[in-house]
């Protein structure tokens, strides 16, 4: 499902890549950008956390020309003079004017790196409103963004992810060059599909999925519904027949001290040993106090 998302066969919407300090999602974001550029789409990159120089190393030189870079990294709060783009310009009106001078025939992809920067400075409702407008229509076909989910309260992460058509959550894999992507996709019909895939990167930044997706599909319905009789398939008998009960009652238990047992123990048969004790003259044996001879 990850490959389908990267290839853009799903038809746009809002795609969110969630990462954490354990695994950075920027590499995957670059693969998305590369794939979109190769499809001859117009890509606008709104970069808060990325310098243009770093980007040149990551992307194909041939494709780089078709990318429009909006530098929000240099001065996002307007501390220096003449900021190219500040975080407070992240409203529908400003974004529209940013995206208008493009070729109308080609689909437009807006990439935001990252939502975390915006969420730290703008209120969640206004960010959600802007994203909803972007999703609903206008010039932009696909909005793609990175979200550092461990930096925000989970309610905030949840409300942003509710807006998304697809959410890719990244966790590190067992081997160092691998990672696991959990993808949740909402189709227009309302059905939700999930997949968990192991992936790694090729030399040219494309994604290689290592294993077949583990479909997590529809929730299982059989569990817990039918009343199961716990006594159905036992290896032992829970009830006794009349005969069995009689036999059980006959049996003398080993710890019950019957008369026969007592006599058998006291009057031992011939050939067994006995203890004879004759008190010595010096023995001052007192039945009342056996420790009498001890000098305490």
């Amino acid at each position: 499902m990850l490959l389908e998302l990267i290839q853009g066969t799903e038809g746009g919407g809002l795609i969110i890549i969630q990462d954490s300090i354990n695994y950075s999602g920027r590499h995957l974001l670059m693969s998305f950008i590369n794939a979109a550029l190769k499809r001859d789409e117009v890509v606008h990159l709104l970069a808060f956390e990325l310098h243009e120089e770093d980007l040149k190393h990551e992307l194909d030189h041939s494709c780089f020309q078709r990318l429009t870079f909006h530098n929000a990294f240099q001065d996002p709060l307007g501390w220096n003079e003449q900021p190219p783009f500040t975080v407070h310009q992240f409203i529908t009106k400003e974004l529209d004017s940013l995206l208008t001078p493009t070729h109308l025939s080609k689909p437009v992809t807006l990439v935001i790196d990252s939502f975390s920067w915006i969420l730290r400075h703008l209120s969640p409702p206004s960010v959600c409103k802007t994203l909803q407008r972007l999703k609903k229509g206008g010039a932009v076909k696909t909005t793609l963004g990175l979200l550092h989910s461990d930096m925000h309260h989970r309610n905030m992460v949840g409300s942003i992810c509710h807006l998304a058509t697809s959410v890719v959550t990244l966790v590190p894999g067992h081997q160092c060059h691998e990672a696991v992507a959990k993808t949740i996709r909402r189709a227009k019909s309302g059905t939700i599909s999930q997949a968990e895939e192991r992936f790694s990167f090729n030399e040219d930044m494309s994604v290689k999925v290592q294993s077949q997706p583990i479909q997590v599909g529809a929730p299982q319905t059989d569990a817990g519904d039918a009343e199961v009789d716990p006594t159905a398939n036992l290896t032992f008998n829970l009830r006794l027949s009349h005969q069995e009960r009689k036999a059980k009652e006959k049996l003398a238990l080993p710890f019950v001290f019957s008369k026969e047992k007592k006599s058998a123990l006291l009057h031992s048969g011939p050939g067994s040993g006995r203890i004879l004790y004759e008190p010595d003259a010096n023995d001052d044996y007192d039945q009342e106090d056996p420790d009498d001879d001890l000098d305490i």
Partner: peptide, 19 residues
């Protein structure tokens, strides 16, 4: 802690690690 109500220094460390 899943609540996200962690101490300032933890949040600072995470934010800087991303940078």
């Amino acid at each position: 802690d899943e609540d996200g109500d962690e101490e300032g220094s933890e949040r600072l460390l995470k934010g800087l690690t991303h940078q």
